[in-house]
Nucleic acid binder design. Sequence first.
DNA 1: CTGAAAGCGCTTACAG
DNA 2: CTGAAAGCGCTTACAG
Lengths: 335, 335
Amino acid sequence: MSVKIKDVAREANVSVATVSRVLNNIPLVNEETKKRVLDAIEKTGYKPNAIARSLKMQKTNTLGIMIPDISQAFYTNVVRGVEDVCNIYDYNIILCNTDSDAQKELKYFNVFIEKQCDGILFIGKSLKDELINQIAISKIPVVLGALTDSEDRIPSVSIDNEQASYDLTMHLIENGHKRIAFFDDEDETSFVGIERKKGYKRALESQGIAYRKEYVFDGKYSIKGGFDLMEELLKLEDLPTAVFALNDEMALGAIRKLEEKGLKVPQDMSVAGFNNFTVSEWLTPSITTIAQPMYDIGALCARMLIKMLDGHKDEVKSLYVPHKLIERESTSDIK
Amino acid sequence: MSVKIKDVAREANVSVATVSRVLNNIPLVNEETKKRVLDAIEKTGYKPNAIARSLKMQKTNTLGIMIPDISQAFYTNVVRGVEDVCNIYDYNIILCNTDSDAQKELKYFNVFIEKQCDGILFIGKSLKDELINQIAISKIPVVLGALTDSEDRIPSVSIDNEQASYDLTMHLIENGHKRIAFFDDEDETSFVGIERKKGYKRALESQGIAYRKEYVFDGKYSIKGGFDLMEELLKLEDLPTAVFALNDEMALGAIRKLEEKGLKVPQDMSVAGFNNFTVSEWLTPSITTIAQPMYDIGALCARMLIKMLDGHKDEVKSLYVPHKLIERESTSDIK
DNA sequence: CTGAAAGCGCTTACAG
DNA sequence: CTGAAAGCGCTTACAG
């Protein structure tokens, strides 16, 4: 059906070896022969079969990328960064959504191995042991994005989540808040969540403020999640004066619930988020948050992985990218 | 380095053919032999090489998907729908961002062909002629998502953009609005944009309202885009009483600009959007919009394409999925 | 500078 | 029920 290298060879009256050399820009080919081959390619409309090439070369120029859920704003920017860099270096990405589910992660990992991906980008909230084992066994190059490996067995590109969380909590404390609630991820195994909680605790401790378990709420990473959590929180006797939510979507939900109950943000309660969601600066009130350079995280991850594939495995080391506290209207000094 | 089918065969004392039969669940294999092979697979940690298999089978179980930009909320939901269906049928997706750029579209199309994708999903705002030619030449199955081909040469899954736009415009007219501005896509070749403008015009005409060119503004499909366009609009002598923006992000930007100028929405001006962006219902004011079933569009596209790949090409026909007008706070009766 | 041939890791028609 | 062998479409070491 489709035209193959053999057809081009016949058309140009050369061997397939010569056609291959022209295709791969190997210099030893006579200019005239080359021209004949090029004409034959043009004439036949030949397109190389990358699968055949990959089999021979043991290289697919394809990277596997796992993310929890592409429909979450945070990850889309990371993926865009990855793809742009891949485009530069002629790689393509196979994209999979894991929902942070261990089974799906292992399944997709196997798919990446079977489809001979040159490397894997793992974006997510935590790396499970079983997956680490599989990675070690297969020896496939992997880079983590937006999270780190606690033992740094696998290189990563991420913000320092503990420090970022500390910074945000300190900011609230400096504004006079002592009763600060924490809207956590319902997924307790989330490494990123754990790190952020550490930062929150460290900030409290550093200022001699007791950590109160009743101020920590686990919920969904969504607007509705924050909305529901605030409903819970408002049942407390001793209300917090500020809330630190693990993403801006949760923070927005929390704010809307407060408004629904006739409370004002930040006058009655300050609410801070995380990630600097695209719309956060446009909301009323706009949301105080920690910005992560999402696009850069993706781009750097991809560069790092490609560097490993180019044989510079030892030059690669884990990287913290800077986060930034953005103060907006949803938080203020305590009255 | 890695273990191959040959190694498994040696381990199990059978031929590679037998191993292959076990791997592919071909029934004619003796139970005991099968067990021996399975043990050998287990023991050696063998993972099939899908690239080799693809070369032989002329089938990669990989779909190419082109979208304008994964970092735009609308597309992420479509992609998630695609991926979920692909997961069910054991396909994977190679994802590419085209920025609706003709060069990138052609480049990626070639990549999909060379990498032997079984089919292609094209999500976007318009299909250029050159790409249609390439599709025709290559004969690769393609399905369009979120847009249609004006001549229906290629099957698609989409809302009826013209009708949706008509519905929304009619809604504004029924609320007493006669001076309705239209925030259009700056990309004039956008088929989706053209369709929506048709619907807008048809609604105006049907009510005997003259189409006024000065009420149509071209801008970026973003919050900032709407923000800037509203700045322009406010310079008009004869201000519109309502604005219809081609997405909710633009609508939000427009609303914020109005607020900045001390105008109230919807009291001073109604603003409607399109797509029902995740946050639209949570904004103040919440945004009147047309909801598209984005996830379903993606899922149906993928199902359609897979159906074509299964040899039911003739059963496949273009599909309109229902849109839904959602009335919220950003629009109201004219005072 | 060019070609014949081996081989990448699979699947399957054919023969037994 | 099982194996030997051809072939999928490339690349490249080797020979000339």
